[in-house]
Design a protein around this nucleic acid. Structure first.
Length: 488
RNA sequence: GGCCCCUUCGUCUAAUCGGUUAGGACACCAGCCUUUCAAGCUGGCAACAGGGGUUCGAAUCCCCUAGGGGUCACCA
């Protein structure tokens, strides 16, 4: 027996940016299909004319590319496949497995509110199930555009065999003759989606849990259409910290926003993978490459519980990736953020690139995001910073600081070479001469050079800034202290 | 409200067939390291929603309750 090729699909609708839930669904599909050695189909579910927008398709694609989730086929757009849905729907009508319904939206709405009053679910009563040709003709003459409804079984049970949840049973009595083609001729989601999955030979439908209760309808469709069923896997949702559905008020929720906040794709991917999945059994590491995740991924190990999305761990993960990232790659990723803060301008001269690279290497360990990285690099590019207030009180206002700084500047001016080691040994011997701790020299120097009390190792900063800027800033600071800190 | 799913530290999670001092990660706290801040290392705090069963033994199996989520559209 031949193993048929595994085919999965990710089918977002272009009604907004790719959000973290959708991205994780895409990721799980990706991990699953890479491990299985199958094909990944990208499909755009754009049958909702009102809300779908072409520019969202581009954004969706850009986000997937940025994450590194590449696909093998598509993107297919449902809007290009409308004949298929019509053809299949007409076939069902011809086979008496579906029928046209002329009920008005108003009459259905009143039925719905009545059902609500009796606290029952509204089920379409099947009024148009057995219309005679004459009756249909009459409706046509009235100019009513019908919808097409699927004739669903009134008895029995539809069982969804779910890869992560096991068997989920739905009584057919609770499923009404739902609409598969709207009066404007476009298919509904439940219909278009399953027609596509069937026609595209999708073997595993991996999607969010919100679709679980749609699945029996789609299975009934598939049966009516005469196709074999794909396997289903409904992965848990991602919730906001207050357990509600994720929305704008919860901060960044889309991949684009995570990008703008300065996250690295590897970190987002790694973080998302662990939301609802873990390699389990003994494995206690949490850092994985896409390849490692693919190797270890297993739908059976996907959780059933909705996960709460909490940015703190993402921040930790991102800072981890910033530390271990290939330096040139990190520089490349960081450049737009440095540009945005007007630290660099893009066609970068070779020596500027070289300097930037050293700056980033010095600062990367204490930044959680690329935005922070650029912020923390400000003084490597500009002189116009203020001195941190607390730092001024702590370091500049101490006795003799001006003299210490001036002496340091004088010594540095005479140094033969201005590398890290030379500067450091100069500072150490000077502090000994002065009979003070090296820290007594280091702290005011850092404040003078950076305006801050925290940052990379001081001697690294000095070597990077170079002799001229270092001395200049030391003298500027000495003057500042005289003018601002020594008044009675 | 009907239907469906879910419930282990604050958060993400682990615990092959029921037998563990219920493990790890993030966060938090403390100590070490140290020129600062980070990082790193060491230690600490912290959970089986509640109640009934079944069993020699239950986080694990069954039932009930509570809570959360999803879905009930001519949205996807």
């Amino acid at each position: 027996m031949f193993l048929s090729e595994v085919r999965v699909r990710f089918a977002p609708s272009p009604t907004g940016e790719l959000h973290i839930g959708g991205a994780r669904t895409a990721l799980f599909n990706y991990l699953f299909v890479r491990k299985a050695g199958g094909k990944f189909v990208l499909r755009i579910d754009d049958t909702d004319l009102e809300r779908s927008r072409a520019d969202y398709i581009d954004k969706l694609i850009a986000s997937l590319r940025w994450l590194g989730l590449d696909w093998d086929e598509g993107p297919y757009c449902q809007s290009n496949r409308l004949e298929e849905y019509t053809r299949e729907a007409e076939r069902l009508v011809a086979e008496k497995k579906a029928y046209r319904c002329y009920c008005s939206v108003e009459s259905l709405a009143s039925g719905r509110s009545a059902a609500r009053r009796d606290s029952k679910a509204f089920l379409y009563p099947g009024s148009c199930r057995n219309l005679s040709a004459a009756e249909e003709e009459a409706f046509h003459k009235e100019g009513i555009s019908p919808v097409i409804r699927l004739l669903t079984p009134d008895q029995g049970t539809t069982v969804v065999k779910d890869e992560v949840r096991g068997e989920v049973r739905f009584e057919n009595i609770n499923i009404d003759d739902f609409i598969i083609v709207k009066s404007n001729g476009l298919p509904t989601y439940n219909f278009a989606s399953i027609v596509d999955d069937l026609q595209m030979g999708i073997t595993h439908v991996i999607r969010a849990e919100e679709h679980l209760t749609n699945t029996p309808r789609q299975q009934i469709c598939a049966a009516a259409l005469g196709y074999d069923l794909p396997l289903f896997a409904h992965v848990p949702m991602i919730l906001a910290p207050d357990r509600s559905k994720l929305s704008k008020r919860h901060g960044a929720t889309s991949v684009e926003e995570f990008y703008s906040e300065g996250h690295l794709p590897e970190a987002l991917i790694n973080y998302m993978a662990l939301l609802g999945w873990s390699p389990g059994a003994g494995g206690e590491e949490e850092i994985f490459t896409l390849e490692e995740m693919s190797e270890r991924f297993d739908l059976q190990k996907v959780n059933k519980t909705a996960a709460i999305y909490d940015v703190t761990k993402l921040g930790w993960m991102n800072s981890h990736y910033m530390r271990v990232y290939d330096l040139d790659k990190l520089v490349e990723a960081a450049i737009p953020f440095f540009e945005q803060k007007e630290l660099v301008k893009t066609p970068l001269e070779e020596q500027d690139y070289c300097y930037l690279k050293q700056v980033i290497d010095a600062v990367r360990e204490r930044a959680k995001t690329l935005v922070e990285l650029a912020e923390a690099s400000f003084y490597f590019y500009h002189d116009n910073f203020n001195y941190d207030d607390k730092g001024v009180n702590k370091h500049f206002r101490k006795e003799n600081t001006v003299e210490f700084i001036r002496q340091a500047a004088a010594k540095l001016r005479q140094l033969e070479s201005f590398d890290k080691e030379a500067v450091e040994s100069q500072y150490r011997s000077l502090s000994e001469e002065l009979g003070i701790s090296t820290g007594r020299l280091i702290h005011p120097t850092r404040l003078a050079l950076t305006g801050r009390t925290a940052g990379p190792g001081l001697f690294e900063i000095m070597a990077l800034l170079g002799r001229e800027k270092t001395v200049e800033r030391l003298e500027k600071a000495a003057n500042y202290i005289e003018n601002n800190c020594l008044e009675k």
